[in-house]
């Protein structure tokens, strides 16, 4: 049984993924997120208030299991739109603290957008997720939940 592995292994795989299959990164993130949440929630009870609790779960447990920190801020307009603020996004922290490489950075958000989308899909929530680099290494993830549409 494998124990822990170095974080850098995931980072290297991610860099190469963005390079080698740029059009498929989000889809691969989706598949990964969908399966990953199954593993992560094995010992957990069902959530009370589905949508908000799921979003809190994404921002806390889900995020810290991948990035070793929680999302810095979660905002919602209470009608299905959520904005996740991340002050130090791991996949872009080593690129730049300023405007340099700003145009390259969105590529490095796609996998994580897919992860979130896949995770939500596993909870039966259909959503659109997009990422925006605001002030590197800070970025936001916009989650728009589509209610009443069956997945």
């Amino acid at each position: 049984m494998a124990g822990m592995i170095d974080d850098s292994v995931n980072d290297f795989l991610h860099i190469e993924l963005v390079d080698a299959m740029p059009d498929k990164v989000e889809q691969i993130g989706y598949m990964t997120g969908y399966r990953y949440v199954e593993r992560l929630t094995v010992d957990m009870l069902r959530f009370q208030d589905e949508e908000l609790d799921v979003m809190k779960f994404i921002c806390r447990e889900f995020w810290s299991s991948i990035f070793h920190k929680q999302i810095d801020n979660l905002r919602t307009n209470r009608s299905g739109q959520y904005v996740l603020h991340e002050n130090r996004f791991r996949f872009i922290t080593r690129m730049s603290n300023g405007k340099q490489y700003l145009e390259l950075m969105p590529k490095y958000l796609a996998f994580t957008c897919g992860l979130i989308k896949g995770a939500l899909a596993d909870f039966g929530i259909n959503a659109t997720v997009s990422g925006d680099v605001t002030k590197p290494p800070a970025c936001i993830f916009n989650v728009q939940i589509h209610r009443g549409i069956n997945v």
Partner: peptide
């Protein structure tokens, strides 16, 4: 409250699942 997540362990899972997704694709 959900149980605390063992971050090192799930990292391994994330890696294995990401690799599996790449192969599927």
């Amino acid at each position: 409250m959900p149980p605390p997540v063992d971050t090192k362990k799930v990292n391994t899972d994330l890696f294995a699942l990401t690799y599996g997704s790449i192969i599927s694709q």
